[in-house]
Structures are given as C-alpha cells and as structure tokens.
Design a binder for these strands. Structure first.
Length: 154
DNA sequence: ATGCTGACAGGGT
DNA sequence: TACCCTGCCAGCA
C-alpha cells in the first residue's frame, strides 16, 4: 500500500484514470502510465491494482468502484498472479494481502476474464492456457484523459 | 544497509 | 521470433 504522499497521489490518479476506461473496452498498464504523464512507470500501475482494496474495506477506490478488469498487459494478455499457496499470501511483493481479495490472489486472472466476458469482451485462450483480448476490437487508447486537454482553464 | 522480488514495457541483439 | 537488459520503486529478508 502506498504510504508516502506522492505514492498516495499516484495510486489515486491511477484509479481515477482506470475509471475512465469504458465498459466493454480494455487498455494496458503502460497506457495508463502514459496518460498520467509517467510513461516509465507501468509497473507501478500494476502494483496499484494489486493492492486495490476490497469493497468491504470502505475505501473510496475499491474493486467494485474501479474497473480493474479492464487493464491488461501490452501484449493483450491477462497477466499472471504468481501465488505460493504455502506462504498463504499473494506472492512476494511486500504487501501481504488476503488471498480472497477479489481483484488479486489465486483465481483472480480467471475472475478478470469472467468479468470482461460479462461486459461483452471476448477473451480467448491459447494452447498455452494464456488468456488474450484482441486490442484491435476492444482496445481503448486515447491520447489524453477526457478531463485534460480540451477543457483547460486559462 | 543491501539485495531482490515483481498484475510492465520498450529497445537491443 | 525470442530472449535479455534496463528503468521503475515499495517493502521484505
């Protein structure tokens, strides 16, 4: 979880940007980073999603208010969520958070695919078991966030 | 303190 | 095409 003020700002910006992704569309971690003017930080976008709160937490941004399922990697693939069942935690990146966290932990990649299918996005599985979305049909890659650019005040 | 992990991405070989 | 390397950065061992 973000602790410093800057990290807090970043996480909130990431969540707000993701809320702009329309239902039935998908974008990439890297694109969210570019929209926020930080093209070098796609990983930190993934981190924010990983620590996204559960709805029960009472947090403003949580897995029911942020369409986390609409963010996939640049190859159009639903990213893996490494998980070590023996450790009873969702892998090694610092924060230990509950394995039943809806948007992360075991099975969350499948939940992501299901959530996408539910909003009309076709998810295909290749011979390796990897799940893909076709960006040419469902991709959302605007050059700017709706709020910026056209709407600047002098 | 140091080293090493990642829900990533782009460039180089 | 398929790796490999390099930024990126918070939190454990």
């Amino acid at each position: 979880m973000p602790r410093s003020e800057e990290a807090e700002w970043w996480a909130n910006a990431v969540y707000e940007a993701i809320q702009e992704v329309p239902r039935g569309k998908v974008t990439s971690y890297g694109h969210i980073a570019r929209l926020l003017g930080e093209p070098q930080r796609p990983r930190q976008v993934g981190i924010c999603l990983k620590v996204l709160a559960s709805p029960e937490s009472g947090s403003h941004f949580n897995s029911s208010t942020v369409p986390w399922q609409r963010v996939i990697n640049s190859k159009g693939m639903i990213s893996h969520r490494p998980y070590d069942p023996d450790l009873k935690r969702t892998f090694v990146y610092g924060c230990v958070f509950p394995a039943d966290n809806y948007s992360s932990g075991p099975g969350s990649a499948k939940r992501q695919a299901e959530a996408l299918a539910q909003e009309g996005v076709e998810v295909t599985t290749d011979s390796m078991g990897e799940m893909y979305v076709d960006f040419s049909r469902y991709g959302w890659f605007p050059s700017e966030l709706p709020s910026e650019g056209t709407d600047e005040q002098p």
